[in-house]
Design a protein around this nucleic acid. Sequence first.
DNA 1: GAACGCGTGGGTAACGTTACCCGAATCGGC
DNA 2: GCCGATTCGGGTAACGTTACCCACGCGTTC
Lengths: 346, 346
Amino acid sequence: MSTRQRRRVTIADVARHAGVSTTAVSKVLRSAYGVSPAMRDRVRAAIDELGYRPRAAARAMRGRTYTIGVLLPDLRNPFFPDILDGLYEQLAATDYQAIIVTGGPDAKAESRAIDALVDRQVDGLLMVAPRVARARLEEVAGQVPAVVLGLHEKSARYDTVLDDDEVGAELVVGHLIGLGHRRIAHIGQRAVGRGRAAATLHEIRAATYARVMREQGLEGEIAVALTSYSEEGGYQGARELLARSPRPTAIFAGADQAAFGALTALHEAGLSVPADVSLAGYDNTRLAGLSQISLTSVDQDGGVMGRTAGRLLLERVEGRRSAVRFSVTPTLVPRRSTAPPPDSVA
Amino acid sequence: MSTRQRRRVTIADVARHAGVSTTAVSKVLRSAYGVSPAMRDRVRAAIDELGYRPRAAARAMRGRTYTIGVLLPDLRNPFFPDILDGLYEQLAATDYQAIIVTGGPDAKAESRAIDALVDRQVDGLLMVAPRVARARLEEVAGQVPAVVLGLHEKSARYDTVLDDDEVGAELVVGHLIGLGHRRIAHIGQRAVGRGRAAATLHEIRAATYARVMREQGLEGEIAVALTSYSEEGGYQGARELLARSPRPTAIFAGADQAAFGALTALHEAGLSVPADVSLAGYDNTRLAGLSQISLTSVDQDGGVMGRTAGRLLLERVEGRRSAVRFSVTPTLVPRRSTAPPPDSVA
DNA sequence: GAACGCGTGGGTAACGTTACCCGAATCGGC
DNA sequence: GCCGATTCGGGTAACGTTACCCACGCGTTC
């Protein structure tokens, strides 16, 4: 019973048991060319009998790890599972296994997390909304096939999958203006040392908000709180915005997660949604659809994004070098959290 | 610039650059015995200059991977990030990196996910609420140091970290009875082929619910819907329970996630919470605290559980063989989703 | 002053898998 | 019935790192 001690069964054991060479076993494992059906069956039988499983490390020494690394900023954003479901669906038919690491709070920690994946020789790397500098992404993409999700920067080294955040933000702000709002505020994510290029999804959302406001002659009403796309960030941002005078009649949170935090702040301030303040989010996470919350949000098809990212990654692993850019057009999902402003003449 | 093609820098490159042997470099890397301060500095300098990073696969061939594998049933349960924060905190001071895989819908898929981690020779394995059979867990624990979180089974092969689900369920049912409820229903998770032993956390919660009901002379009021600890499962479960006549005045969902789904079902049925039906969950996820939801729930300190799991895992990696069992006592967090039943005489 | 011990550094053989190459056998075409 | 082509199987050398051992030189002890 002391399985711990017993040496794990290797390709040599299988070869001996089947009475063939290790080369033959290896060929069967990889379904490589030059092996007869009889040989295949014999080896397969030996593999099953011995319960043999190839060691990833030994394979990695010679080539593939059959591993796809996924970098997530955190595990709390309920939008990420949608992406991953799409990725899993794409990988299901292959021998590849996805492993997830989280990037942590700052660019430095995230960079270490990326290193950890590169050290483990993942065959492909999916980086979701990375915070590290563009140069770092290029460097990583030089070492391993990479797809970046959620960054608007163009690159010749990696593929990009993104939501058209400009359209999404336009939809939200347009919707609020259409309802009669003028004092529309925005909760965004503070940029952290990625240089000047406005390329992250939160920067695009914030910039588009400001642009639409200006285009509608509401330049003077622009009010932005930059915190983070998290519950805590939304809470702080909303508190900051509500403290202003006059206070906004609508808040566009750059992410549902932040909108949830804003809900708490609004409640604490004794304000009701949407009677006193309208609130909209982004991502259309499942919780947004809950009747008690019923949050107006922007739907970006995470499943499609994840599937596409997976497909692009597999293509890159197979050798494609040209860079692809895939964009999903989002749609607005109006719910009960947005309504005409309180003093509107309907 | 063609970094992709350039061979990655190895220990031999560092040795050459520093004018020492590869053995010496290896010793410095592992801070092993038998290396002078001068040697150490020289090698460190060479490492920095060349930007050397050890390859995990090559290390794995000789021993450790410095990787901790984490198996999660899914990514949507907001309780899991709390656990992982605790684990990360524990690992932060070490060289270990956590990688996450998800188990998928059934025991078979989960078993494959576990295999994937074992194949990658993780130094330790944390399995959160695993669905696979006990024998499988024992087998895995025989191959790699393992900690199981959320299962009440005892084992001599792996450590166990759990919440005292019996206390938790008692708190909820007691709370509801104290409010005057009698027709209290439960939404649980359907057991999937783990044999007869009632050891999963959902089985304990369901069994305790039934026990307390019986103890309070409410045996005739027992009503259970077995679906799954997910939004969809909660939705289906609540619909099933609400279709009964007379319908329950309170629902105890075995997980907040399921309670969220139940909320939708209640809303669709035109019932308000808590005026018509009281609702309680389990896990005290962040969303439960949202004022719009304000869900009565049971708090089990996920951070402590994660930290403990991490500590136990590290101890096991260091050689401990005895099995440890760590239990956290939960507390009730009453919120506005529970109140006396509608026809109570207060 | 010889013997011993200790501190320090290096040589080398694994670890398990695959890619490359080569040889043997079989087959088809004239 | 011979020759080239094709198919099938095996031998072997890596891949990068570490554990084990040995060698050398210096200081200490009788």
